[in-house]
Design a protein around this nucleic acid. Structure first.
Lengths: 344, 344
DNA sequence: GATTGAATTGTTAACGCTAACAAAAAACAA
DNA sequence: TTGTTTTTTGTTAGCGTTAACAATTCAATC
């Protein structure tokens, strides 16, 4: 029968008492040990050890007025690319004694303000946004906070502040060109609901412009309303594609997950990929290279996005002035052509 | 050229000044509005609005000595099951005004103490462990903190405190029995390095005991040293399996990822699944049902684990006594038999 | 209109910590 | 020695908030 003892962490006061010194001596022994006499330091360390003392970071922040927390806002933890970005960010920030506080927003819009309120209530040193789809109120609130804000995984033309990302429109266009280069002309774009996914819309815009450039039909677009970005969306979507545009020879899927669903459904129906239908994804998911046929996708340096964001943040917290370019990093992407879109 | 203004959030003092009331009145207007006169409340609310005031949660915690943060320790964000557990936990805790602080440990052992120190320095109200592989020192530190600790995704016989999980040994045994029921007798277990994955070892133990029960060879075990739990591990592993145990008719893979790699490699080699080799995974990854053939796996109620953990935590923070069972929840699991192990 | 109790607002101290200054102790110089 | 640095340690006040109590205001009663 589990019981909660009163969770009483030792305080600096108790450590001081036990070591027979003043509070400040303990504080100094921890943060600037070199200014404390060796013998005293030993006593303090012994007391810390004996009492299992761990300084209260919140109290410290309050006193120094310097936060060591960086908040990361991400839509969900389910997309591995985002997780890698958090990894990169976390490891970069760790070097500077900064820690990551993760706030998941679950894609829900009406709680965005509440989420931001919660985050800002924790007084972070900066905010990293992984989804940048923000209401005007939210932008306002963030900017008004005066904190460094870094938008990632996108490259908006009107950034709030700093940016580390890439152009989704360029992704859409590059994948389209790749397929055109493979002699496809009946290319269909398989996406999700337009109103909730600005990045998907950007990729779609890229598709459209690349098609138009070659005077191809840029309106071959199929939208799956349910199951946004899931494997199931791909399954459903490919069927719609083949219904609506039976002459389709290539499908650009919004993400690798969607592409996977599409490929699996093709296999089930005995449709050969890439011979009858070529398929591309996006996002460089770990499974993409292992599918049979292996999936053409885009490689994004997700970890690197996090590292860059961490560097920018640190620089700005040091009040280092950043040039325009230093504060706006386009990490680019790479089209990884694989068997799902390249005939043997 | 991004610049960091001095990040100066308004304080309660400024709100009070602007509203022409005392600090406490502001505090009360926020936390117990019903005891503040309507007219005063209006004034305070206007001031809060005007100044964009957001209370400093850290200062509040310091004053009340009540934390609203629950720390979640997880090895990495990359496993979707864990992410779902965090979702469940987060949404349950939200109901009670508690927030989740995520600490990723990246599976690295020597920083475990440092990680715990960082976490405890933030003075959470409780700790939820998603990986429970802990050093004696770590256990000591957590227990010594007096905080409620909830281990999840496992069902250890010697829990530190509360537990929400399932028996990995039972998983291994159940999958083995499933294959035996399908008339397999040459079953090989495909796992990873034994020293770093106690849960995998438990599943292996389950396999062994189920095999032994039927007087079958329980030593058909292949270990992939690199790429722990990745798709690639499955690719490499299945080859080793077929080399070492050419008579294998069924393979139990440590996770769905591994199973996916194994299936893909089989396909590449023209080995029919399940006719020549049956394959099972574990973990209920989203792709498992979409593979062709669909993958036999175990379904774990990952979200539910989080919800249960949240409930237990809340109860304990209310100092509600929990019975032995209430503090030790076995959420069980389900073998989901699919085409990869069941002949049509 | 004084009395009283309830409703409302204010004051003080404390949470755990550290910056800034003050004091004491030790080391050095004359 | 005795003064003068330098090193080391201590004291005070304050970070933003709230619990606990104190004071004030208000409305209702006699």
């Amino acid at each position: 029968m589990p019981r909660t003892k009163n969770a009483t962490q030792a305080t600096i006061k108790e450590v001081a008492a036990r070591a027979g010194v003043s509070l400040m001596t303990v504080s100094r022994a921890i943060h600037r040990p070199e200014v404390v006499a060796a013998t005293t330091r030993k006593k303090v360390e012994a007391a810390i050890e004996a009492l299992n003392y761990i300084p209260d970071a919140g109290a410290g922040r309050l006193s120094t007025q310097k936060s060591t927390t960086v908040a990361v806002v991400l839509p969900s933890l389910h997309f591995e690319g985002h997780a890698r970005t958090v990894d990169g960010l976390s490891s970069e920030l760790r070097k500077h004694g900064l820690h990551v506080l993760i706030a998941d927003s679950f894609y829900s819009k009406n709680t965005e303000m509440e989420l931001l309120r919660r985050i800002l209530g924790r007084r972070p040193a900066g905010v990293v946004l992984i989804n940048s789809a923000h209401s005007a109120d939210g932008r306002q609130m963030l900017l008004g906070s005066g904190l460094p804000v870094i938008e990632t995984w996108d490259f908006p033309s009107d950034p709030m502040d700093s940016v580390v990302g890439f152009s989704h429109k360029a992704v859409g266009a590059a994948l389209t060109r790749h397929l055109i280069d493979q002699n496809h002309s009946c290319i269909t774009f398989l996406g999700g609901p337009q109103d909730s996914d600005p990045r998907g819309n950007e990729r779609l815009a890229g598709f459209r412009s690349a098609m138009a450039d070659q005077h191809l039909d840029a309106d071959r677009v199929v939208t799956v309303e349910q199951d946004h970005l899931t494997i199931n969306a791909g399954k459903l979507g490919i069927s719609q594609v083949l219904d609506q545009y039976p002459d389709t020879t290539a499908v650009i899927c919004l993400t690798d997950r969607v592409a996977m669903g599409a490929m699996m459904e093709c296999r089930r129906r005995g449709i050969s990929v890439p011979d009858e239908v070529a398929i591309t994804g996006h996002g460089g998911f770990d499974f993409s290279e292992h599918l049979v046929p292996s999936l053409t996708t885009t490689h994004i340096d997700a970890y690197g996005i996090g590292v860059h964001a961490g560097r920018i943040l640190h620089a700005r917290l040091q009040n280092q002035l950043l040039s325009e370019e230093q504060g706006r990093i386009d990490v680019g992407f790479e089209v990884v052509a694989r068997d799902s879109s390249v005939r043997a």
